[in-house]
Write a protein that binds this DNA or RNA. Sequence first.
RNA 1: GCCCUCGUAGCUUAAUGGACAGAGCAACUGCUUGCGGAGCAGUAGGUUGUGCGUUCGAAUCGCACCGAGGGUACCA
Length: 585
Amino acid sequence: MFATEKTFIESKIKTYLQSLEIEHASIEFRQIPFSGEWGLAVPLFPLAAAEARAGKKINVPQRAQELAEGIKTYLGDDLGGFSHVEAVNGYLNLYFSTSTYAQRVIDTVLEQGAHYGCHPDRGETVMVEYSQPNTHKAFHVGHLRNVILGGSICRILECAGYEVIRANYLGDIGLHVIKWMWNYLKNHDGETPAEDHTHWMNQIYAEADRLFQVPENEAEVRALYARWNQRDPEILALWEKTRAWSLAGFDQIYNQLDEHFDRLYYESEVETAGAELVESLIASGLAQDERPEGPVIMDLDQILGTEGEYRVLVVLRSDSSSLYATKDLPLAIKKFEDYQLDKSIYVIDVRQSLYLKQIFKTLEIMGFEWADKLYHLAYELVNLPGNVTMASREGTVVLFDDLVREATRRAKAIVEEKNPELTETTKQEIGEAVALGAIKYTMLSRDNTKMVTFDWDAALDFNGQAAPYIQYAHVRAGSILRKAGQALPEPTVYPDELHKTEVDLIELMTRLPAEVYRAAEEYRPLIIASLSFEVARAFNDFYNSCQVLNAAPGIREFRLRLVAAAQQVLASCLRLLGIKAPSVM
RNA sequence: GCCCUCGUAGCUUAAUGGACAGAGCAACUGCUUGCGGAGCAGUAGGUUGUGCGUUCGAAUCGCACCGAGGGUACCA
């Protein structure tokens, strides 16, 4: 936004430094850390330190200050767009005039609209694999973090200029599916799904899991597994039918979460390729076949000459049935056959770090030159209070639909109280937007590597650092603009003096483009979550200290434009987090 | 045992080797009332897990230790 000024001042500084015989100096610009004024800070420490290293006997901080003062004197009044300059503590601080800066920021935001903060196309394609649910099973709060994180990462990457392919990988085969079908045939034959597919599917699964403990039941399940392996048409048909039910259930969930996928991969579609791949690994001598006494393994440490680093990867069970690894290897290959990828990201919880490291290394050993483009985006688990882990087996899960229902109920009650004249449909809609926003924000506002302890009250706390607070700021901004009752004023000359809260708000808005870039590089939605909260807080501060509609002519127009720009930034941040920005609540 | 990740105020976090470790929630003390309940002013809370090292300069980089979590051949 200030490239011209930057270039100008940089060349001036370089000219001056050359006169001191300091060549090849790299000038670094950063934000001035004091609030209330804008500008660029140039630390002179690196230059002074370079001189010290070159053998001059100097005190670095003192020399930095000397250089800063020298530059200040050299520049004189020729500041090219900056209003004043100071040399302090080893920094050269270049200040913009408040009104020029404010005007430029607000005009840029309004002009770029929803694109503000986003970057031009980089010509790179990234695949993000996330969600990965098992069909025929529950969808609980633990799975939720994965979808929310993956979805937000996709939006951030897109905004940062990447072409993104959203991939899902569904566990549609395996013992859990056979158990389910066995119970269905035995106890639920002919039944069709209840309205909430996933919930219904899970009830049958949970029951099957319990019954499986009885030995004769287990024998029956095994027998059914054998029929499956022989591709019994009746079983295949049942599998296809029930799988479709499960997928329809997931679609309901993804719709509620505002998520979609570009490409679905199924475990069932890579199983055969996996078996073939294992055979070729054995043939090439990379894998050791210990069947039937043992499994087929790859001793990665032995192959690489490392110790305790990569360990042993089991690629096929001793009974020749497949494992995760059997399918993940061909899947990785398939992805690169299907698309020209510059990066392939796996959003999978941290417990699988070693496993994914092994998979990536194995592909490298196999000679795939794209192996270095694979990346495991690890995130920590969701816990329940009292250090209880989510486990379907122990029944210690909070199911997705229960969570959303309860959250919506609470959110709707608040909406009802604040805004009783809304229609029932609108209340329901807003209640859901607020509820899902609160849940998503809870998951995204802590770092990927930090455990989220799921607490009903904390997740649904609509005050404080939470999504409803941000959504509410967005609504308030909209309300002012509505009341202004006219088209947004054209850009005008801005006031010379701004209120402190206006300055803070504008300052935060300028940070969006850089923060999007950083969030994309580091795969950290938290950065956007924090910024969105700060913008909302700054907006509320402004709202409480500055009148907009009753402000003097001139000021009023400026403030209306500021409100519109702030609303735009809030909307953009929320969009990046996958959180809806309602217009009333 | 070995490997990985993480330790900043009660909680969530900021500072990307440089200007006083900066906020917000929660807590405490007052005051105020709505351009949408909630807001404002203030207080308190930190030897950045510990110790060494590198550096003119370390929350930031390195090493060691301590603590938490996870993983460690046929679970997913």
